[in-house]
Simulated scan of single mutants.
Amino acid sequence: MSGVVVVGVDGSASSLAAVEAAAREARLRGAGLRVVHAFIWPAMGVPLGPSPMGPAEGGLRNMAERYVAEAVERARAAEPGVEVSDAVVTGEPLTVLEAQSRAAELVVVGSRGMGGFVGLLVGSTAVHLAAHGRCPVLVVREQPAAEGPIVLGADGSTAGEAAVDFAFAEAELRKAPLVALHAWTTWNALMPAPKDPSMPYANPQGALAGEEERLLSEALAGHQERYPGVVVEHRAVHGATRTALIEASRSAQLVVTGARGRGGFTGLLLGSVSQALLHHAHCPVAVVRAAVARH
């Protein structure tokens, strides 16, 4: 066994779905599974034990232990061969899980938690981890298509290279086909050089589409050789990236995207495409940041 997959739990149905997904990811990787609950109450200065007037099994600490025990039981039932450990870690969930991500292969969370407000489509923990986590973050949303492909949002950016690596590896682990989708419009396309400098915007018909298809091929170059068993479909489409990926997610078992891509603004912690997928995708979403140093 090598490495560990971390899953954050809080007793919600969403986090238990994340546990099952995390257990599967651990099995595929030959990794261990670490079930983590962030126990914020000690920092709030509130009583942690059972009330003198209540049952002995009451109290916040016992509740946290029950959340973890239920999650561990769910993980072992889903994947009996996976080694499962657990921890109740004092701290705020965002800080705890970000720290856990430093030594993890993957962090898995549900899209909604116990503290989710009605109308908030994705929990703040998921968004924060996608922007700051030190490893890829898998956010479990709706049930995926069992036999669907892995869909990769590829934009040809340097920041997106880690997402390409992750998508190919995931497709190989799952023995699933990979759809590499690159969507472009006249506003974000790479403009080919004009043949006549006096007419800077007069390019041959189809030139933009050709440039974008080339960009997609270059983004995938080398990966198909490293993963010869992965069947890859190149799909360069004219349209909005968010719309295209959300639509593709309807028949996918996983969508993979970078945290930032072409055209990202300095200081923007999570790109608009990643945000849209976390809110509206019809399957789990993996957000993969560019390689970061681990301390």
Rank of each mutant, 00 (worst) to 15 (best):
111 S>M: 02
78 A>I: 10
111 S>V: 04
65 E>M: 13
123 G>Y: 11
84 V>P: 00
116 G>N: 08
87 A>K: 08
128 H>I: 12
124 S>P: 03
97 L>G: 07
78 A>V: 06
83 E>W: 02
78 A>N: 03
86 D>L: 07
134 R>A: 13
110 G>L: 05
143 Q>V: 04
132 H>S: 12
79 E>N: 01
129 L>G: 10
92 E>N: 12
111 S>H: 10
129 L>S: 08
70 E>S: 10
83 E>R: 10
97 L>A: 04
100 Q>N: 07
125 T>V: 15
117 F>W: 09
75 A>Y: 06
140 V>F: 02
107 V>E: 09
94 L>N: 14
95 T>Y: 13
138 L>M: 12
66 R>D: 14
127 V>F: 09
67 Y>C: 06
140 V>M: 04
119 G>I: 01
86 D>F: 13
120 L>G: 00
138 L>Y: 06
86 D>R: 15
70 E>C: 05
76 R>N: 00
70 E>M: 10
80 P>H: 00
116 G>L: 08
119 G>D: 00
79 E>A: 10
106 L>F: 08
102 R>D: 09
86 D>A: 15
100 Q>C: 15
121 L>E: 01
67 Y>I: 09
94 L>I: 15
117 F>N: 02
138 L>S: 09
128 H>Q: 13
116 G>E: 06
98 E>Q: 15
138 L>K: 06
137 V>Q: 03
134 R>N: 08
130 A>E: 11
73 E>R: 12
140 V>P: 04
143 Q>I: 00
88 V>D: 10
125 T>A: 14
65 E>S: 14
77 A>L: 05
144 P>Y: 01
121 L>N: 03
140 V>C: 03
109 V>Y: 08
69 A>E: 15
127 V>K: 13
81 G>A: 03
103 A>V: 06
103 A>W: 13
131 A>G: 15
90 T>V: 15
112 R>F: 07
104 A>Q: 02
131 A>M: 12
137 V>P: 13
130 A>C: 15
93 P>Y: 11
101 S>Q: 01
130 A>V: 14
75 A>G: 03
112 R>K: 07
141 R>V: 02
85 S>R: 11
117 F>V: 09
139 V>Q: 09
103 A>P: 00
67 Y>G: 01
82 V>T: 00
104 A>P: 10
139 V>H: 09
102 R>V: 06
133 G>V: 10
109 V>T: 09
118 V>I: 02
101 S>G: 02
103 A>R: 14
112 R>Q: 07
106 L>Q: 01
76 R>H: 00
66 R>H: 11
132 H>D: 06
124 S>V: 11
105 E>Y: 00
122 V>M: 05
120 L>T: 09
103 A>D: 12
68 V>Y: 11
115 G>A: 09
142 E>V: 00
126 A>R: 12
97 L>H: 07
95 T>V: 15
123 G>K: 04
118 V>D: 06
138 L>T: 08
93 P>N: 06
135 C>T: 14
141 R>T: 02
84 V>A: 01
128 H>P: 02
102 R>G: 11
98 E>N: 15
132 H>R: 14
129 L>T: 13
109 V>P: 04
94 L>F: 11
66 R>L: 11
71 A>E: 05
129 L>P: 08
122 V>P: 04
120 L>I: 07
143 Q>L: 03
78 A>W: 01
